[in-house]
Design a protein around this nucleic acid. Structure first.
Lengths: 262, 262
DNA sequence: CGCGGAGTTGAACGCATTCAAGTCTTGTGG
DNA sequence: CCACAAGACTTGAATGCGTTCAACTCCGCG
């Protein structure tokens, strides 16, 4: 769609040769309609998937049917690695918008392990970062108040997209509704709407036409108490994000060398 | 301490030979004092760790210093796999009680990969289940109300210990304070105390002397809207838990075959 | 005996929910 | 082009769950 390819999305992790190698194991792209449930919890799975384009969400529902949105996947994410080892997922995967995925049959993982164990291991690394994002999600909904949850989530989604070159530094696409946002932040749609109003009134950001415009990113980072160490960014992106945060009062930290191949 | 060893804790995953092999890569046991921070966020790490005995918690703090408790590790957990791939953690690890860990130098992972790639891969599997537990943690604090959060967390901690043979079916050790419990559930200690009172009054459970006595486990499962598919239990334990849930109204599900070696 | 940590209880406050009634957008078909 | 419907967004007012602050009890321990 927009030129996203494996080597671009994971240029910080995979060398061009590795990206080509992994790409060879992916099946042809499959288009998804908007609002399509394409992986159901507990269903036996034989393929994992790589998200080429569009936004996808992970969900778990309570017994009254109300959903908690557990993770947001953006283009370039491997969205189904757990099924390789576990054979099924414990949650549903829905597309928000029209999207494109490439599936990877589980047998091909074995082939990849054979051909390039180090490259194969990087898939483990990817799932460990996913786990860190999940933990941070629990921190966000467990510890922060309404306005901070939204600011914090926005900051994460911005940084993740920015680090892949999916957006400029002053705005980013957020292809979900306020209702989805509320389910992500563990609050009601009404309250999410009010908190968005506050963020707008405070001159921090505005959500217009499925896009968040960042009027004051440092203020967003501060309001959301956002830190990004859990994203394990490559050092150059880390420095870039640090620069964008400007006058934020985040605790000082040392950047940690990360395996970067390009 | 109480005879927990690698082969017992992971008997559903590792064969005796595999358990012996992994055990050979572990260093000698290290004792931890109660309330000791033994891994600090962002610190460079050269070892992972295996929890032999005691309870350990993962934490992340907001900028005012209030903590969110992100995960509870019980004996038999590998508590530090992410550091092998990522070189550091994004959160703190604290012991609750006196505890015992065995460290495993990162170099030995490479040796294990060399010696037994399939066994090595099971460590990836373990971290994927950890990730599922993290996602469910977000569901719990994001979607459930106070009393349900506590009942749900209790149910998880019970099932995880029960599946390792760490407790009987009518009670389980919970070596944390009400303050810790509140930090786990994203609520104040005062409120956690009141919710515990309600659970006791309803005849569901009581927390006495660092032990939860289960008066009515099916009612706990129902109140907490607990499901256990995300724990990826071996089929025999799965059936056992299903039996204990008795008259719970959990949605019906098919059990899924899981790699079991013993 | 006194100390400190853990647990318990009461009362006032406030953030977030709930329910309801609107407005604004967007896509569709006449 | 307009009419209409459906979904998304917005706003108000009442309610309630959970917080906050405070005081007090209980228990183990030196």
């Amino acid at each position: 769609m927009n030129g996203i390819s494996l080597d671009r999305a994971y240029s910080d992790l995979f060398s061009p040769d590795e990206a080509t190698l992994v790409g060879r194991f992916l099946d042809d792209p499959i288009p998804l309609r908007a609002r399509q449930r394409f992986v159901r919890a507990r269903e036996t799975l034989t393929h994992s998937a790589y998200l080429v384009d569009g936004f996808v969400g992970r969900y778990r529902s309570d017994w009254t049917g109300r959903r908690q949105f557990l993770a947001l996947q953006i283009p370039g994410d491997f969205i189904d690695l757990p099924s390789y080892m576990l054979g099924r997922l414990d949650h549903d995967l829905d597309s928000f918008t029209a999207a494109t995925i490439c599936r990877m049959p589980h047998e091909k993982f074995t082939a990849l392990r054979q051909a390039a164990p180090d490259t194969y291991d990087k898939l483990w690394r990817i799932s460990l970062i996913d786990a860190a994002i999940h933990r941070y999600w629990a921190f966000r909904v467990g510890r922060l108040v309404g306005r901070a949850r939204i600011a914090n989530l926005f900051a994460e989604i911005f940084v993740r997209q920015f680090s892949r070159g999916l957006c400029d530094q002053d705005r980013f696409p957020l292809l979900i509704t306020q209702n989805d946002l509320a389910e992500a932040c563990g609050m009601t749609p009404v309250h999410a709407n009010r908190m968005l109003g506050e963020l707008r009134a405070e001159g921090i950001c505005s959500l217009i036409n499925r896009e968040v415009v960042l009027h004051d990113f440092p203020a967003m980072v501060k309001t959301g108490q956002f830190e990004w160490d859990y994203l394990f960014l490559p050092p150059d992106i880390e420095a870039e994000v640090q620069r964008l945060c400007g006058r934020s009062t985040a605790p000082a930290r040392r950047s940690q060398a990360i395996c970067r191949m390009l």
